[in-house]
Amino acid sequence: MNRTSRLVVLLVTVVVLGAVAVGATLHAAGRAARKDRAQAGGPAVTPGAVRLDDPHRAFFRNMAWGPHRDEITAVPAGRLSGPRTASGVRCLRFHAAAGTGICLEAVHGELRDSYRAVVLDRRLHALRRYDLAGTPTRARVSPSGRTVAWTVFVSGDSYAGTAFSTRTSVLDTRSWHLDANLETYALTVDGHRVHTADINVWGVTFADDTHFYATAATGGTTYLVRGDRTARTLRALHSNVECPSLSPDGTRIAYKKRVRGADPDAPWRLYVLDLRSLRETATGEHRNVDDQAVWRDGHTLVYSLPGDFGSDLWTVPADGTGAPHLLVSAALAPAFDR
């Protein structure tokens, strides 16, 4: 090929590839625009005042298409599929208890997006904001509403970096003391202090404002750990536990367990662990669950599964009986006053 024909081939290549790239972007843009319009047959969403201390309401991130997508919405506590009141506060992850809310939000900047954790009061006004080092994944508020925790994924910026790690922070909303990284707590497994470099901690669930449970991973094993904020310790109680969620009476942990023989693409099942006997009970949900479940009351679990709008909320009894059923579609990150 001579120089001219090479340039012609390059020009044709640029035009073809450019057309594909522009086409793909326009297609995605059109899809994004559709998501901003309410879907026929979708849930009724109206803007309005939302109060986190309203005992007759439950809250979640509205995933339904329309102008209020991603906003925290209130629904009747007894009928989650009922009309949604949108608060105007957009969150990727959310949790609330006793009138305190934690919202992990995206901040759209000029040159890049970043993330913040926002502590909300009962009227969903921001009290404080904290910059985050990565992508939000879990958020929890203690039963008293005083302490909040969040987990983000931090990724290395190396070429095609595949080394992800988590960073979990715990914040006292009265003194505003922040424990920025729970990996600095002393981790013990079987009574031995663990000194390896690969510790990751995620998925805090609070017992009270001092004690909590979480997942700690090291050496390829995940552990349920009991954390103490005063002593700054994490003590492993049980292995193969991820994303724990403590029952309202503090006796059981709902969690996702990596089960043997499962499809490696979908390895987690929803289990409940009795903290006294350490006996594991499989729930009636046999599909893969990748969520930190929430207790709706002392015997019912609520969790997210992928749905047509990103996520639906499902429910199953905690004692291993019964079958799962769809609670509400197009919803994520629920919070119930219990």
Partner: peptide, 17 residues
């Protein structure tokens, strides 16, 4: 990629490391 995995696919990318 991190955002895609977590926000879009809802995956926990921890096992990667």
């Amino acid at each position: 990629l991190p955002l895609y995995l977590v926000a879009e696919l809802g995956l926990s990318p921890l096992g990667f490391g």
